[in-house]
């Protein structure tokens, strides 16, 4: 089982559009949307949901007013200022540590587990799909990401598929760490802007920290060719394979409006050729083929 995770550090560089494009070129694959915070892949994949499961997170403190003697212990032990003077818990501030629950001399604090979101197993035009929806303002996005990646791997094994393509979240924090641990390789989508390069370097450092090989592609490269060249130099310095360049093209917005991926939107264009060329490089990259065997079947469409 090989897992390719599409990342970027900076948001809005084209992760999801390219994930959908790659998924339509790949065969025998499962797709996973690990951006559980603002999941968008389903808008292109239009999956048919087969199974929905609640995602339960930790507890949140709830003071039972009738049993509370207002001794103030809970307010003293809470490090998150989550309990106000009238002994009401602010669920947004509550970290779910349960220290007040254990310390309350009257046992007056309940700790009901919270439903933090839902996750889905679906069928889509690009293969079976595992995705999720984290509740608004919820924590535990890392846990949900780990869970759906595990489910996606199991689903792929069940179906006899050997490739998992995962659309990752932006940033470098908990959901990103959860989406790359144990992955085979990362594809980092960079835009040629000062922010794009800055954020790529931080993701590259994270990849190094977790010892996961990275590959880099520059999207919207024609917005700044000079920076495109520096991104490719930086990538090479970091031992990351340079996969190629995709031009700025309104086809990404147009196909998104139609709810399709770019290969479904039109037959042929320089952009499509560029993306196809990049996909060939990805599937044939040594990191995905540790025996050094070129994956001809996956290359030829």
């Amino acid at each position: 089982m090989r897992e390719l995770v599409i990342l970027s550090g900076k948001g809005g560089t084209g992760k999801t559009s390219l994930t959908a494009a790659f998924a339509s070129l790949a065969q025998n694959n499962v797709i996973c949307d690990a951006d559980v915070d603002a999941a968008d892949l389903h808008l292109l994949a239009q999956p048919e949901v087969k199974a929905t499961t609640d995602f339960m997170g930790g507890g949140i403190a709830e003071i039972v007013t009738d049993s509370c003697i207002e001794c103030g212990t809970c307010r003293e032990v809470c490090r998150f200022d989550a309990i106000d003077e009238s002994f009401t818990v602010n669920p947004i501030s509550c970290e779910g540590c349960g220290v007040c629950v254990d310390m309350c001399p009257e046992g007056a604090i309940n700790f009901p587990p919270q439903k933090c979101g839902e996750w889905f197993i679906s069928d889509s035009r690009f293969g079976p799909m595992v995705h999720a929806r984290l509740g608004i303002a919820e924590e535990n996005s890392g846990k949900l990401v780990s869970l759906i990646r595990k489910e996606a791997r199991e689903l792929a094994e069940q179906k006899g598929h050997d490739l998992l393509i995962t659309d990752g979240p932006p940033g470098i924090g908990c959901p990103v760490i959860a989406s790359i641990s144990g992955a085979t390789a990362l594809v980092i989508v960079v835009e040629p802007t000062v922010s794009g390069i800055h954020d790529m370097l931080r993701v590259a450092e994270l990849a190094k920290h977790f010892q996961i090989p990275g590959m880099v592609l520059v999207n919207k490269f024609d917005l700044n060719q000079e920076l495109t060249a520096s991104i490719e130099q930086e990538a090479a310095k970091l031992n990351m394979k340079v996969l190629g360049r995709v031009p700025f093209d309104t086809i990404f917005v147009k196909s998104m409006v139609k709810g399709v991926n770019i290969f479904e939107y039109e037959e042929d264009s320089p952009t499509l050729q560029a993306v196809r060329g990049i996909w060939e490089k990805i599937v044939n990259a040594p990191v995905l083929n540790n025996m050094g065997v070129v994956d001809l079947k996956a290359t030829i469409q």
Partner: peptide
């Protein structure tokens, strides 16, 4: 970006 705890920390 997003809607989970980091965003809440920045807009609360």
């Amino acid at each position: 970006p997003g809607t989970s705890c980091p965003v809440i920390a920045a807009i609360n």
